[in-house]
């Protein structure tokens, strides 16, 4: 089984979000591997390899500072990695760079996380599938494969669907598909010598640009209602908030 896992680097959730000159202020930020990429996409890919044999390749589109998270992915169990040396400005640019690598390499499966926690796109997997003309199953919470046929559970509004796919596909992953793995010492040691290939970009550029950022308006402080007077809350929800 030949599997590609797309991983991105994002600011940790607890980061205070600030902007200077309409740019995300990246000082003092703890960068992490995007949670769904690390816990779900990567771990399920490694489990499938352990079960059936094959290889797990990591791909990231980004600068040299991303090598740190790529090494972590190798420590968790991937075999090798590709970094496309570009500073992407939108999801299309990312997808196009990954597609130009994947076109040649003939992967059986391509895993992504469900969304990045910075730009919250939910986009790269679908774009990639379209560029490669492959099926795309989003929000998979279970996935089994024998190498030629995969059975996938995906979430839909108010329930789930069980889907069968033959041949190559792209999948976005979420909770349920695997459990987080903490890299062990042996993994960390071996990650240092696993191949990490850096390639220059040859995909297409962005289709959109971010013109400016805004912070949400300061929330007014909470209106406290006496526990003995819940009727007041109902009144406020109806008359002031107009939500019931």
């Amino acid at each position: 089984m030949k599997i590609l896992v797309c991983v991105s680097k994002v600011p940790d959730t607890t980061t205070k979000i600030e902007f200077t000159d309409n740019q995300f202020k990246a000082d003092n930020v703890t960068w992490i591997m995007n949670p769904t990429d690390e816990w779900y996409a990567l771990v399920r890919a490694v489990e499938l390899k352990e079960q059936h044999g094959g290889t797990v390749t990591i791909i990231n589109v980004g600068g040299a500072e991303n090598d740190q998270i790529i090494r972590k992915a190798l420590a968790i169990g991937a075999d090798d990695a590709v970094r496309v040396n570009a500073e992407p400005t939108d999801a299309y640019e990312v997808a196009s760079q990954i597609a130009s690598h994947a076109k040649e390499a003939n992967y059986d499966m391509i895993f992504t996380g469900k969304e990045t926690i910075d730009y919250n796109g939910f986009v790269v997997g679908g774009m990639l599938a379209e560029l490669l003309d492959l099926p795309y199953i989003s929000l998979a919470s279970k996935l089994d494969s024998d190498g030629s046929k995969a059975t996938i559970e995906r979430e839909v509004e108010g329930g789930n669907e069980i889907i069968e796919v033959s041949g190559a596909f792209v999948v976005s992953t979420q909770k349920g598909i695997a459990e987080q793995r903490i890299p062990n010492m042996r993994g960390i040691m071996s990650a240092r010598t696993k191949p990490l290939q850096v390639v220059e970009p040859n995909g297409e550029g962005a289709l959109s640009t971010i013109q400016s950022y805004e912070l949400p308006p300061q929330k007014e402080s909470v209106k406290l209602i006496d526990a003995e007077n819940v009727g007041e809350l109902v009144k406020l929800l109806h008359e002031e908030a107009k939500v019931i």
Partner: peptide, 24 residues
């Protein structure tokens, strides 16, 4: 809609039509 199906479809359509996308 940026619901489950819409998320998958909008991404694919954007790539197919080379149309700029705002997701969400």
């Amino acid at each position: 809609s940026h619901n489950y199906n819409g998320k998958a479809l909008s991404a694919r359509l954007s790539a197919r039509l080379k149309a700029g996308l705002v997701a969400g």
